[in-house]
Nucleic acid binder design. Structure first.
Lengths: 204, 204
DNA sequence: TATATTGTTGACTAATTAGTCTAGTATTGT
DNA sequence: ACAATACTAGACTAATTAGTCAACAATATA
């Protein structure tokens, strides 16, 4: 019973957009309200702080992406192909962003995590949690690739950490340079880390 | 002639420290002044804004590090050994930071660049410039390694970009997790990207 | 339809922030 | 010594910010 509204969702969308296109520090509660078309009183009706809305929005956003990632990393897809498609997906996404809003924005989790990690512990914990989920997809793909002898990678967890670091580093590079073309080398770099040379990459 | 003071330098030290231990957004001009023990009037005597002091400080800090990097990447050191020492250096530095101030702080250029790149163009340009210098050291080491047939890397520039992305990504990971041990895998990851397997890495 | 409940509004306070300005102090070269 | 210069102090304004509150509006359900 009672009134219904999507203001809560609009505030969550707004905070993620502002953080991503700008930064956590440059995102004020007033700017979140403006972006969402919601008054401040309503903001504090739903959330108790900027950190609160950010954590909630990250979690909600992550839940909304799971299905897509489950599909991308489906066990029915050959393991190395999963990774290739993921690279392709990242490239397309950043290219689209550049076209639509003029900026390559990189990975919001990494950008935000790096900005606030010494100051906002609950946010940091949520970001680490979600980054961990992403890593799991890669780790399992590597394990499968190793099992079918496409690569030699007995320690899938370590390889997954390496690949994530490279992936996130390159996305950040793309953001700083505002250039999505940087991401073209993503599959080559990843497959090099997996011990596949140029020739083997072409064969795959 | 006239009065002399090191307030300008203290302000530059302060802004870098605050940005590194916190973030650009959380660093206010008042906090810079407090940290430096300088009044606001003096701040505006030397600098015209936060972005101004940050750019100046980055440039000055970079100049102060050149000699050290020239030594680390000296042509008299075997090329792959240069890279190994650089990894070692990064690990030591972050470990020391963790011990001294409780936090793994990662790379200030990447953290800051990622935070402000959509908002502060002069800062972004300076950061990109300095990141480019770092990349040159790696690129030249790779070229030398290729020349002496330690590795097969005809495109040294691309390999250097890959390595930098991985390096910076891993440092950011270490910052977010507040754990320097993450950096232990740095040499392994880099040498994997250079096409050296486990066995060849041990041999080198 | 009554009403409990959910959500909205905007004015309000208090704190923080960037940036200015004037009057001053210390020091160096002459 | 004495000026010209380099730097400092700190009070001030105006804008922005986070956060509160009480009165109000819409609606689902009994």
């Amino acid at each position: 019973m009672g009134r219904v509204s999507d203001a809560r969702q609009r505030l969550m969308d707004a905070v993620l957009k502002l953080i991503w296109t700008g930064s956590y520090g440059s995102t004020t509660i007033d700017s979140i309200c403006d972006q969402a078309g919601v008054r401040k009183g309503s903001f504090y009706y739903f959330f108790k702080s900027k950190a609160d809305v950010a954590v909630t929005a990250l979690e909600s956003d992550w839940q909304g992406r799971r299905a897509q990632l489950d599909e991308l990393f489906s066990a029915t897809v050959p393991p190395l192909e999963r990774i290739r498609q993921f690279c392709e997906f990242a490239y397309r996404k950043q290219t689209a962003l550049k076209r639509e809003c003029g900026c390559v924005l990189g990975c919001p989790l990494y950008t935000l995590g790096s900005e606030i990690c010494t100051q906002e512990q609950t946010l940091r914990a949520k970001i680490q949690e979600i980054l961990g989920y992403y890593r799991k997809y890669v780790e399992s793909a590597i394990r499968d690739a190793h099992a079918e002898h496409s690569i030699d990678a007995p320690d899938a967890a370590e390889k997954a950490r390496m690949i994530q670091a490279y992936y996130e580093g390159l996305l950040t590079q793309a953001r700083i340079q505002n250039d999505a073309e940087v991401l073209r080398e993503l599959p080559r770099g990843i497959f090099a880390m997996l011990g596949l040379g140029q020739a083997e990459q072409l064969a795959a």
